[in-house]
Simulated scan of single mutants.
Amino acid sequence: MIRDTVTRMLRRFAIVLIAFGACASSATPRNECEKPVYLTFDTGHMGIAPLVAEVLQRQQVRVTFFGANERTKEGDGSLGDHWAPWWRARAQEGHEFASHTWDHVYWRGDLGGKVNPSFRVRPSAGPREGEAHVLSAAGYCEQIDRAAHRLQAMTGRQPLPLFRAPGGKTSPQLLAAARACGYTHVGWSPAGFLGDELPSDKFGNAALLHTALRDIRSGDILLAHLGIWSRKDPWAPAVLEPLIQGLKERGFCFRTLREHPDLGKKQ
């Protein structure tokens, strides 16, 4: 009889615990995020791409990748067949994708008027690498579209209707042309420039990490790359994982641009 009484008491206690857990779960959703930051990666030589993927998977962080078909240390370009399995795996992990223009085309100036705009450009990849030439608005849109379509073909995931101009270099006329073909430009926050493009002899990893942890604020869009040719002391994973861990310790959480309160409305 004593055993039966104890059993009944334990069952009632378990029911209370389950009910309390359900209430707590509903009161505090698992996906609640009060201090979001938006980590983004542009393509590059892809030499550190596998290490970046390992860190993101280990830290359970989802990011937004902006892809261009840049020259790589291995394979046939960052959006080439060699790297297609890598992109497909990132899609399976829940990351998001957007265009960085196919040939990594830098805007250099506006030509023409608002009715028929064209642009002076200089791509850093592709058959016209390093060559200054002129693109019409339709030609620039084709550059955005081509990278977006390739990302979708590799990942099976619809890219975001966003793009990032190489170097963040734009003009009101260029942005208007991109909007006309369905794309919104995304730059980065001042504190979100993580410095992996800077020379490592003047801007060491420890200093870049310290600056980022000190200055990043809620809502910032952060920028890094999948390999910078000129940086001798790779930024990732040396800075990437301590940065993620440090921001988490400060109460930040990581979201993709699909979840951005302003950019998400455009999708």
Rank of each mutant, 00 (worst) to 15 (best):
Q57N: 07
Q59T: 10
Q59S: 05
Q59M: 12
Q60Y: 08
Q60P: 03
Q60I: 12
Q60R: 15
V61T: 01
V61H: 03
V61P: 01
R62Q: 14
V63G: 01
V63A: 04
T64P: 01
F65R: 08
F65C: 01
F65P: 02
F65H: 05
F66S: 00
G67Q: 03
A68D: 07
A68M: 05
A68Q: 07
N69M: 03
N69K: 12
N69C: 09
R71L: 06
K73F: 12
G75F: 14
G75M: 13
G77H: 07
G77K: 04
G77D: 09
G77A: 11
S78P: 00
S78A: 15
S78T: 10
L79I: 01
G80Y: 09
G80F: 07
D81M: 04
D81S: 14
D81K: 13
D81Q: 14
A84W: 15
A84F: 13
A84H: 14
A84P: 02
A84I: 12
P85R: 04
P85N: 08
P85D: 09
W86D: 06
W86Y: 15
W86I: 09
W87L: 11
W87H: 15
R88N: 13
R88Y: 11
R88T: 04
R88L: 05
R88G: 05
A89F: 08
A89Q: 14
A89T: 13
R90E: 06
R90M: 15
A91V: 11
A91G: 12
A91R: 12
Q92I: 03
Q92G: 14
Q92W: 05
E93H: 08
E93A: 15
G94Q: 12
G94L: 10
H95W: 13
H95P: 00
H95A: 04
H95N: 07
F97C: 04
F97K: 11
A98D: 00
A98T: 08
A98C: 05
H100F: 11
H100C: 09
T101P: 03
W102L: 10
W102Y: 14
W102E: 08
D103F: 10
D103I: 00
D103S: 13
H104F: 00
V105T: 15
V105L: 09
V105H: 06
Y106N: 14
Y106S: 09
W107F: 15
W107A: 04
W107G: 02
W107H: 15
R108K: 15
R108C: 08
G109K: 12
G112D: 15
G113D: 15
G113N: 09
V115L: 13
V115N: 04
V115W: 02
P117E: 14
S118V: 08
S118N: 10
F119G: 02
F119D: 04
R120V: 14
R120Q: 15
R120S: 11
R120F: 11
V121E: 05
V121A: 04
V121S: 01
R122M: 11
R122Y: 00
R122I: 00
P123H: 05
P123E: 02
S124D: 12
A125P: 04
A125F: 06
A125Y: 06
A125V: 05
G126D: 07
G126L: 05
E129A: 15
G130V: 05
G130H: 09
E131M: 07
E131S: 08
A132W: 07
H133Q: 10
H133E: 03
V134A: 04
V134G: 02
